[in-house]
Simulated scan of single mutants.
Amino acid sequence: MKYLILALTLSFVCSCKQANDKNIQLVTVDVAKDYQPKEVWLQDIADIEYIPLATSDSMLVNSTPSVVSDKGIAIRGGKIGEILLFDKQGQKLQGRICRRGEGPEEYTAVIFNIVDWQRKEVFIADFTSLKVYDFSGKYLRTLSRQSIMDLNIIDLNTDYLLCSIYKEGEENPYVPYFLLSKEDGKIDTLSIEIPRCIASNRKILWDDGHTSSAYGILPQLYNCTDKIWLTDVALDTIFVMHPDQHLEPVMVPLHAPTADQEAPLLFFRGMNDRYAWVSRIPRQVTVKMSDMAANREKREKLYMYDRHTDEWFEPIYRNRAINNRETDPKYIDITSVPYGYGLVQLNAMDLVEAYSKNQITDEKLKAIASQLHEEDNPVLMVLKFKM
């Protein structure tokens, strides 16, 4: 099949040659190392654009991050199971899907959704199926009835979704990646082999003192709206997948997890031409069930890399547009925007309060905040990273 990828070994050799021809620097990260905190001002690393989302009784959204593209903005609605499709200015609705239910043409929950703006279709996954709807919410077809909790699924192109399947505890080589036809659900397995399943060993400590074991599995795929990375830790390498489907290595851990049984696992969090973001997962983890239930489980630190300075650090983000440290973002969303962009969602209530206290220093944001009410939809802060 014309979309079938060559074997990983051949792809690696070809893409390494291309990387050398273009003098592309392969990023190496010591996942076991702690890096120093550093203040990062958003205005120093990116050009800023603000997109206020219109508010009405039929256009109320929740706090779930938006997906921003040059064709529109997708976000979860205020009703359970609702997805709203705004125009790219965030002012008008292009579509609305709300088909939550138990019927054969409905979904029981929205685990994730993928919008194909060209086909004008929305792919919605609940726990046991992947269904397709048009922008008006009309049911079109069901592509898969496999347990979605075992899969990574992302948008590849107009014809296909790219998927990967977990095989917990698998000790033998297997091929996790496959293409899923958007039209009929046909599967084509890609000849990308990993040697075995590698995961962190999680011990769950219960209140009565007994323990149980679980796998800490990391994503096999990572993407922004227009670029895809293969991230299975057993590959010992992060690969970017180009539109012609060849693979290029872009990041490697200093200690390969296939060779070092104690090496922490690299959790890839995105990259662009200048910056990269990663976390790490220890190979041995013990957590209390009470902490998990209360969402008190320790979160691993996020690290950021600057190609210009060849520097790794723990970013502490600051927003110069608002003179209030309590509104500084904790992270930058890299997955919901195109390559080279980032996204921060600004809560309307915070903006109204900051405006009333004369804490907004950016004139464009000040003008937007002056028209907001506390119950309004959020304002999207789109970052175009500087080179």
Rank of each mutant, 00 (worst) to 15 (best):
T231W: 01
H255D: 15
K330H: 15
T225C: 07
P378Y: 06
P243H: 15
N324M: 05
I322L: 08
P282I: 01
Y174F: 14
T128C: 12
K288G: 13
T142E: 12
S279K: 04
K357S: 12
S144Q: 08
K88F: 15
T64M: 13
N358S: 13
R325Y: 14
E193P: 01
Q345D: 10
S290I: 11
M289E: 13
V287P: 02
L6V: 12
I24F: 09
P338N: 12
D116P: 02
E82D: 04
S129P: 00
S356R: 14
D30S: 01
Q371S: 10
C197A: 14
L265R: 02
T225L: 04
L161N: 06
D44I: 03
N113Q: 14
S66K: 05
Q345G: 03
K203S: 13
Q18N: 10
S191I: 09
W117I: 08
M251I: 00
K38D: 14
K186G: 11
T128D: 12
I238S: 00
N323L: 14
R99W: 10
V382R: 06
F112Q: 15
L42W: 02
S69V: 02
S129L: 03
I194D: 01
H246Y: 10
K330W: 13
E168C: 10
S200G: 11
L372V: 09
L247P: 00
L130K: 06
A354C: 04
R318H: 11
R99T: 09
R299A: 11
G340Y: 04
D150G: 09
L205N: 07
I114K: 06
A294F: 07
I368G: 03
I332N: 03
F313S: 02
V40I: 06
P219C: 08
Y275N: 03
M289F: 15
T231F: 01
S181Q: 08
T211V: 11
M304V: 05
D87I: 04
E311V: 02
Y303K: 00
E171I: 15
L266E: 00
P173I: 04
A7T: 14
A259Q: 14
Y215T: 13
D188P: 05
K120W: 08
Y303P: 00
S58D: 12
N113G: 11
A294C: 08
E171S: 14
E82T: 02
K364Q: 10
